[in-house]
Amino acid sequence: MKRNYGGLYAAPQALWLSLFFAAPLAIIVAYSFMKKGLYGGVEPEASLDAYRALANPTLLLVAFRTLWVSLAATAATILVALPCGYSIARSRNQSLGLFLVIVPFWTNFLVRIYAWIAILGNEGFLNDFLRLAGLVGEPLQFLYNQGAVILVLVYMYLPYAILPLFSTIDKFDFTLLEAARDLGASRLEAIVKVLLPNIRGGLVTAVLFTFIPIFGAYAVPLLVGGKDSYMLGNVIADQVTKTRNWPLASAISMTVTFLTAVAAMLFALRSRRKAVHVEIDAGVEATAATRAAS
């Protein structure tokens, strides 16, 4: 007789998660509802001060800025990652491509940010090259602005988008593209109408895997951003490390976590429903049926 040990085997994982994920989260929730200690930490006294402080217009301004930087960086990341994932999936040497995508992870991310500073600086490699090529006289200011923040964020999170896109594109049946071409679709139409809907799952994962960490970015705006590149991640860090307001830092984190979770769930749900539609659409008869119904 065989017994099912599934629950037993999963126990360490459950224990691990509840210890190292749920417990810290619970602490953050608790802190956000407590009174701030004068010298950091919290007083054991319930308070909604931190949530009241969220209504501050400067905070809302940072939130909106963070949102647009994250959206722009995510969009750019996906646009770069799509052709990358596609070409790796179609190449004869997939493992080499994947290997190259993963290689940067071997270097500490701070070192990679400093490497970008060395490239983009006024005396950096890019300006040196432009000067040697005679394209510019005075160095161009690439660093310390929103553009630099977005560029480096795209670089940092590109692998997180390429990998899920690759894995779904790899499973895609490319004969469908040929079929689409045979049926009169142009090359672009075939990709937009047949490939993209079929890799929707990968796209959703890629968007979530890049948008969420970018929304909490801290080091990149700190190091390559300018005087107005302050993002929510920086606010949270400063509240903990400089102004000793732990409850406010917790309240901002909680709000962001809550909003991201809700948005991610809605996004995932909506995409799933759409994906169902796509499957139906794929069948010609089904399409006809829908048309007849509408």
Binding site: Y114, I117, G121, N122, E123, G124
Partner: peptide
Amino acid sequence: AFAKGFAAGE
């Protein structure tokens, strides 16, 4: 990183 940027002429 102000010192690094300063020394690099940024």
